[in-house]
Simulated assay, not measured.
Amino acid sequence: MTASLELPDRLAAYLQRSGVALAVSVCEGDAPLMFVNDAFTKLTGYTEDEVKGRNCRFLQGEGTSEEQRQPLHDFVHGLGEDSGRFPILNYRKDGSEFLNYVFMSRIRDSSDAVRYIIASQFDMTNAMQRSKIRQNDETLRTVLSDVEQMGREYGLAMMSSAQQLADSVAMMARLSLRDTR
Protein backbone atom coordinates (compact mmCIF):
# COMPACT_ATOMS: atom_id res chain seq x y z
CA MET A 1 0.00 0.00 0.00
CA THR A 2 1.36 3.42 -0.88
CA ALA A 3 2.03 6.05 1.75
CA SER A 4 -0.64 8.29 0.18
CA LEU A 5 -3.21 5.68 1.19
CA GLU A 6 -2.30 5.65 4.87
CA LEU A 7 -4.84 6.99 7.33
CA PRO A 8 -3.72 10.07 9.23
CA ASP A 9 -2.40 8.97 12.65
CA ARG A 10 -4.96 10.91 14.67
CA LEU A 11 -7.85 9.45 12.68
CA ALA A 12 -6.50 5.89 12.89
CA ALA A 13 -6.02 6.26 16.65
CA TYR A 14 -9.58 7.54 17.10
CA LEU A 15 -11.07 4.75 14.97
CA GLN A 16 -9.06 2.14 16.88
CA ARG A 17 -10.37 3.40 20.24
CA SER A 18 -13.99 3.36 19.12
CA GLY A 19 -16.27 0.74 20.64
CA VAL A 20 -18.14 0.62 17.32
CA ALA A 21 -16.92 -1.94 14.78
CA LEU A 22 -15.21 0.10 12.05
CA ALA A 23 -13.47 -0.78 8.79
CA VAL A 24 -11.84 1.37 6.12
CA SER A 25 -11.24 0.26 2.55
CA VAL A 26 -9.38 1.93 -0.28
CA CYS A 27 -11.26 2.95 -3.42
CA GLU A 28 -9.18 1.09 -5.93
CA GLY A 29 -9.40 -2.39 -7.37
CA ASP A 30 -11.80 -4.54 -5.36
CA ALA A 31 -12.00 -2.03 -2.46
CA PRO A 32 -9.70 -4.01 -0.13
CA LEU A 33 -9.73 -3.32 3.59
CA MET A 34 -6.81 -1.28 4.84
CA PHE A 35 -7.94 -0.85 8.45
CA VAL A 36 -10.19 -2.56 10.97
CA ASN A 37 -10.44 -1.79 14.66
CA ASP A 38 -10.59 -4.16 17.61
CA ALA A 39 -14.39 -3.91 17.79
CA PHE A 40 -14.55 -5.20 14.19
CA THR A 41 -12.32 -8.17 14.99
CA LYS A 42 -14.39 -8.93 18.10
CA LEU A 43 -17.65 -8.78 16.10
CA THR A 44 -16.44 -10.96 13.22
CA GLY A 45 -13.93 -13.26 14.93
CA TYR A 46 -11.30 -12.50 12.27
CA THR A 47 -7.94 -10.96 13.11
CA GLU A 48 -6.71 -7.79 11.45
CA ASP A 49 -4.11 -9.78 9.50
CA GLU A 50 -6.80 -12.14 8.17
CA VAL A 51 -8.90 -9.31 6.71
CA LYS A 52 -6.49 -6.63 5.51
CA GLY A 53 -6.28 -6.59 1.74
CA ARG A 54 -9.59 -8.45 1.32
CA ASN A 55 -12.98 -7.14 0.23
CA CYS A 56 -15.64 -7.47 2.95
CA ARG A 57 -17.52 -10.00 0.81
CA PHE A 58 -15.73 -12.69 2.82
CA LEU A 59 -18.34 -12.01 5.55
CA GLN A 60 -21.16 -13.06 3.21
CA GLY A 61 -22.32 -16.63 2.92
CA GLU A 62 -24.95 -19.08 1.78
CA GLY A 63 -27.85 -17.20 3.36
CA THR A 64 -26.84 -13.76 2.10
CA SER A 65 -29.32 -12.78 -0.61
CA GLU A 66 -28.60 -10.98 -3.86
CA GLU A 67 -31.07 -8.29 -2.73
CA GLN A 68 -28.76 -7.62 0.23
CA ARG A 69 -25.55 -7.78 -1.81
CA GLN A 70 -26.48 -5.52 -4.73
CA PRO A 71 -26.84 -2.22 -2.83
CA LEU A 72 -23.43 -2.75 -1.21
CA HIS A 73 -21.88 -3.57 -4.59
CA ASP A 74 -23.42 -0.46 -6.12
CA PHE A 75 -22.20 1.74 -3.27
CA VAL A 76 -18.63 0.41 -3.47
CA HIS A 77 -18.66 1.08 -7.21
CA GLY A 78 -19.62 4.73 -6.75
CA LEU A 79 -23.37 4.64 -7.38
CA GLY A 80 -25.79 6.66 -5.25
CA GLU A 81 -25.26 9.02 -2.35
CA ASP A 82 -21.96 9.31 -0.47
CA SER A 83 -23.48 7.66 2.63
CA GLY A 84 -25.82 4.74 3.00
CA ARG A 85 -27.25 2.10 5.32
CA PHE A 86 -27.28 -1.56 4.37
CA PRO A 87 -28.72 -4.51 6.29
CA ILE A 88 -26.98 -7.75 5.30
CA LEU A 89 -26.69 -11.27 6.66
CA ASN A 90 -23.04 -11.90 7.47
CA TYR A 91 -21.06 -14.76 8.98
CA ARG A 92 -18.41 -14.76 11.67
CA LYS A 93 -15.22 -16.76 11.35
CA ASP A 94 -16.81 -19.54 13.43
CA GLY A 95 -19.67 -19.76 10.90
CA SER A 96 -22.34 -18.18 13.10
CA GLU A 97 -24.73 -15.76 11.38
CA PHE A 98 -25.42 -12.20 12.38
CA LEU A 99 -27.62 -9.52 10.87
CA ASN A 100 -25.13 -6.75 10.14
CA TYR A 101 -26.45 -3.22 9.76
CA VAL A 102 -23.67 -1.48 7.86
CA PHE A 103 -23.37 2.32 7.65
CA MET A 104 -20.99 3.35 4.87
CA SER A 105 -19.57 6.69 3.77
CA ARG A 106 -17.24 7.63 0.96
CA ILE A 107 -14.29 9.73 2.11
CA ARG A 108 -13.16 12.39 -0.32
CA ASP A 109 -9.90 14.30 -0.25
CA SER A 110 -9.48 18.04 -0.77
CA SER A 111 -9.67 17.60 -4.55
CA ASP A 112 -13.05 15.81 -4.12
CA ALA A 113 -11.65 12.44 -5.21
CA VAL A 114 -12.97 9.43 -3.29
CA ARG A 115 -10.03 7.93 -1.37
CA TYR A 116 -11.64 5.61 1.17
CA ILE A 117 -14.88 4.00 2.24
CA ILE A 118 -15.49 3.88 5.96
CA ALA A 119 -18.01 1.41 7.32
CA SER A 120 -19.44 0.90 10.78
CA GLN A 121 -21.05 -2.42 11.58
CA PHE A 122 -23.78 -3.12 14.10
CA ASP A 123 -24.92 -6.62 15.05
CA MET A 124 -28.69 -6.26 14.97
CA THR A 125 -29.43 -9.98 15.36
CA ASN A 126 -30.99 -9.53 18.78
CA ALA A 127 -32.12 -5.95 18.32
CA MET A 128 -35.74 -6.86 18.91
CA GLN A 129 -34.89 -7.56 22.54
CA ARG A 130 -35.43 -4.33 24.45
CA SER A 131 -32.28 -4.70 26.53
CA LYS A 132 -30.15 -5.04 23.40
CA ILE A 133 -31.74 -1.94 21.87
CA ARG A 134 -30.99 0.06 25.01
CA GLN A 135 -27.40 -1.21 25.03
CA ASN A 136 -26.91 -0.31 21.35
CA ASP A 137 -28.45 3.13 21.93
CA GLU A 138 -26.15 3.78 24.89
CA THR A 139 -23.10 2.71 22.89
CA LEU A 140 -24.16 4.99 20.04
CA ARG A 141 -24.71 7.93 22.42
CA THR A 142 -21.20 7.47 23.83
CA VAL A 143 -19.57 7.28 20.40
CA LEU A 144 -21.63 10.21 19.10
CA SER A 145 -20.54 12.26 22.08
CA ASP A 146 -16.89 11.56 21.22
CA VAL A 147 -17.44 12.36 17.54
CA GLU A 148 -19.34 15.50 18.50
CA GLN A 149 -16.42 16.65 20.67
CA MET A 150 -13.95 16.09 17.83
CA GLY A 151 -16.33 17.92 15.51
CA ARG A 152 -16.39 20.92 17.84
CA GLU A 153 -12.59 21.03 17.63
CA TYR A 154 -13.06 21.63 13.89
CA GLY A 155 -15.94 24.08 14.43
CA LEU A 156 -18.63 21.62 13.31
CA ALA A 157 -22.00 20.80 14.78
CA MET A 158 -22.93 17.12 14.72
CA MET A 159 -26.45 15.70 15.04
CA SER A 160 -27.11 12.54 17.08
CA SER A 161 -28.38 9.64 14.96
CA ALA A 162 -27.00 6.37 13.64
CA GLN A 163 -26.75 7.81 10.12
CA GLN A 164 -24.97 10.86 11.47
CA LEU A 165 -22.45 8.61 13.21
CA ALA A 166 -21.27 7.29 9.86
CA ASP A 167 -21.34 10.78 8.36
CA SER A 168 -19.51 12.26 11.36
CA VAL A 169 -16.69 9.74 11.28
CA ALA A 170 -16.48 10.29 7.52
CA MET A 171 -16.26 14.06 8.09
CA MET A 172 -13.41 13.60 10.58
CA ALA A 173 -11.60 11.51 8.00
CA ARG A 174 -12.11 14.18 5.33
CA LEU A 175 -10.82 16.90 7.63
CA SER A 176 -7.83 14.78 8.62
CA LEU A 177 -6.98 14.25 4.96
CA ARG A 178 -7.10 17.99 4.33
CA ASP A 179 -4.91 18.66 7.38
CA THR A 180 -2.17 16.38 6.05
CA ARG A 181 -1.80 18.21 2.73
Rank of each mutant, 00 (worst) to 15 (best):
C27N: 09
D112F: 08
A173N: 06
D167W: 15
A127M: 12
Q149C: 14
P32D: 04
A173W: 04
A113W: 13
S105W: 00
A23N: 11
Q129C: 09
A119D: 12
R152W: 07
V20K: 01
D112A: 12
R178M: 15
P8N: 04
R57C: 05
S120G: 07
D49T: 15
A157W: 08
E28N: 15
V169L: 06
T180A: 04
Q16D: 08
D123H: 04
A23L: 14
R115D: 10
E28A: 14
S120K: 07
D30G: 05
Q121I: 00
M150Y: 08
E50F: 03
T44A: 00
M104I: 08
S145L: 12
A162Y: 09
F98K: 02
M128E: 15
L59F: 06
S105R: 07
R174N: 00
Y14L: 15
R69C: 08
M159I: 12
L15Y: 13
Y46V: 06
A170I: 01
V20W: 00
V26W: 11
G84E: 10
G63S: 00
Q164A: 15
E62S: 13
Y91K: 04
T2M: 12
V147F: 04
L144Y: 02
M104N: 10
S120P: 00
D30L: 10
M172F: 11
D30F: 09
D82R: 15
G63T: 06
R106I: 02
N55V: 06
G80I: 08
S176R: 00
S65W: 14
V76T: 02
E153A: 12
L15Q: 07
E81G: 11
F35P: 00
M171D: 06
S160W: 14
Q70Y: 01
F86M: 03
N90P: 12
L11A: 14
G19A: 02
G29F: 10
N37I: 05
R85A: 05
Y14D: 06
G78Y: 14
D167N: 15
V76M: 08
V76L: 15
A3V: 14
V20I: 13
V143A: 07
D74G: 02
L15E: 03
V51A: 09
Q60S: 05
G95C: 06
S105I: 10
S160A: 05
T2I: 10
S111I: 09
N126S: 08
G29C: 02
A162H: 05
R92E: 01
